[in-house]
Design a protein around this nucleic acid. Structure first.
Lengths: 332, 332
DNA sequence: TTGTAGGCGTTATCAG
DNA sequence: CTGATAACGCCTACAA
């Protein structure tokens, strides 16, 4: 491996001159520059980034904490993160946490051990809680599912408004008993969406029936099971609002398995607008989220934080859009 | 940030002793060890990994080159990679290449610039082709879609046998005109699967009809479009073999849109057995691949290569399984 | 414009 | 068993 010293010898200059030639070519004389560049290419010299990072005390690595990479929504977010990071000269260290807080803390410590400069957390948990970051800004951005009192910049959807919009769509179709397949209890994201659901019911003068709220875990399987519960309860809902398209796809399967039709007997709506949403049968009515934008925004906020630039707003709300397809229809 | 020197002062020993206490506690006297450990915790000392990496000339980072992270099959592979890497003390630098070779070469150069120790490439392209790695083993493992003359360890499926098995299943159901929605032309993976498809046809005495081979790009959209082509061709197939579940899901949508039923009029089979395969309507007959195992195997092969251990076989073939569900049925 | 030299934090070598 | 010291490769005052 050729290092800067070899190049210097080859060019007959000092290492400082080589370094300068590479970093600010204009402050060395044209003749020297030419000689150095020739030596660089002759030696096939590539700066050792490990050394550069060590010296500059910055790795330009970002840790991404994702609950499950197999979730197609998160996969898109990560795609956005990767793209933005690369554009700004950063690399992405991917960590699949499966929602385990000890794992998250472990990965977050990659920042304290200087393997990475900052963290993008896609879940509502602060893995630095124990650490002291009194003096400097917490090197973290919280995106998608966001803490209630975030100690750092955030990127999220107005989940409450989105859920309200979707619920209103169902109410407009004549539905009065609307089931909801939620995310895990205690999640701020789910709480906000339930609030939006309640907002819509209340505005329409529909009483809340707690039995129509079933928890899931965002997977198709959990949607399938939760739909089974809803079908079994007396006063069966005529519409089901799922907190993710994956659960909606599971729910539709369950509804069909019960010999009912979607949306003929029961309307089903999802959330996220994943690719499969439009290929489902029937195609899913859903709330589209700008998944890649979540990732890109998170990256710029984090890099702003890391580099001390904080002009940009610290708490970003991204827009959603109601996408009406065939899985929802008038109340039978 | 407290460094080893501070700890040494605090404990009243030399930095060497601190380093030794942390690395091999048994070679320092119990008294010293206690003093050092006390100082370590008092100073809340965390070794600076950048420095460690710099000195050891190893980052313990692995670059993963993935064509599209949004593909659920690759997402699972990455999950396996991440899990195995973490267990072995490595981190994963994720790079979404979108199949662009310049991007792949750029990311691969993270190894030559010492940001990472090795590369896991999930596509049939050698991003190091230009580089000279004569003396030492190429720090790469090629998994999933594998080069024909791989310059490194590989992990793959016996794609030819798998495609043959699936095609035979369709032939057993009485199908004689079997369409195939392939991957991109020129891909070794697709070529092998087409070969397996041909093997099965030939064994059954069915002549190959080139018009029944349609290329796609593994997305549901491309499956949808390709199915449209197949439906339009004269001598329409009674079964369609898709090279990915995602394309199969797209194909099913197209078949239904044409007013035909699956499998009543046309059988459709996929490949991969993604989660959505069993939630499709009808549920997909497919070839199950051990996605996470691809990732785990790739990681161990790569680490073996990097650490000079090469006992394990260099070219691993992973098992597949035919999963028969409702999307395939007897020829009408 | 160019060279010299110190230091980033750690570990390994070599004495004591 | 422990301490002093020299690297690792690079950048940047400071000096010439």
């Amino acid at each position: 491996m050729s290092n800067i010293r070899k190049v210097a010898e080859l060019a007959g200059v000092s290492v400082a001159t080589v370094s300068r030639t590479l970093k600010s070519p204009d402050i060395v004389s044209p003749r020297t520059r030419a000689r150095v560049l020739a030596a660089v290419s002759e030696a096939d010299y590539k700066p050792n980034l490990m050394a550069v990072q060590f010296r500059s005390r910055r790795t330009r690595n970002l840790v991404v904490l994702v609950p499950t990479i197999s979730n197609t929504f998160f996969a898109r977010v990560i795609g956005g993160i990767q793209q933005a990071a690369q554009q700004q000269g950063y690399s992405v260290l991917l960590c699949n946490t499966l929602g385990r807080e000890d794992a998250e803390r472990g990965y977050a410590s990659m920042v304290t051990t200087r393997q990475a400069d900052g963290v993008i957390q896609l879940r509502a948990y602060n893995p630095f809680a124990a650490d002291a970051y009194a003096d400097t800004a917490l090197p973290m951005v919280n995106a998608c599912e966001v803490l209630d009192s975030p100690p750092c910049p955030t990127v999220k959807l107005d989940n409450r408004a989105a859920a309200r919009t979707l619920t209103e769509h169902l109410i407009d179709l004549g539905h009065r008993r609307i089931g909801m397949i939620k995310g895990p209890r205690r999640s701020p994201l789910t709480r906000d969406r339930v609030a939006g659901y309640c907002d819509a019911l209340e505005a329409a003068g529909i009483a809340l029936d707690e039995r129509l709220l079933c928890p899931g875990d965002f997977t198709p399987h959990s949607g399938f099971n939760a739909a089974g519960m809803l079908l079994a309860c007396d006063g069966r809902p005529s519409a089901i609002f799922c907190e993710s398209d994956e659960m909606a796809i599971g729910a539709i399967k369950r509804v069909k398995q019960a010999g009912l039709s979607v949306p003929g007997d029961i309307s089903v709506a999802g959330f996220d607008d994943i690719t499969f949403a439009s290929f489902s049968d029937p195609p899913l009515t859903t709330i589209a989220q700008p998944a890649e934008a979540f990732g890109r925004q998170a990256v710029s906020l984090l890099i702003d934080t890391l580099e001390g630039r904080c002009e940009s707003p610290r708490h970003v709300i991204l827009p959603f859009e109601l996408v009406v397809r065939g899985s929802t229809g008038s109340k039978p």
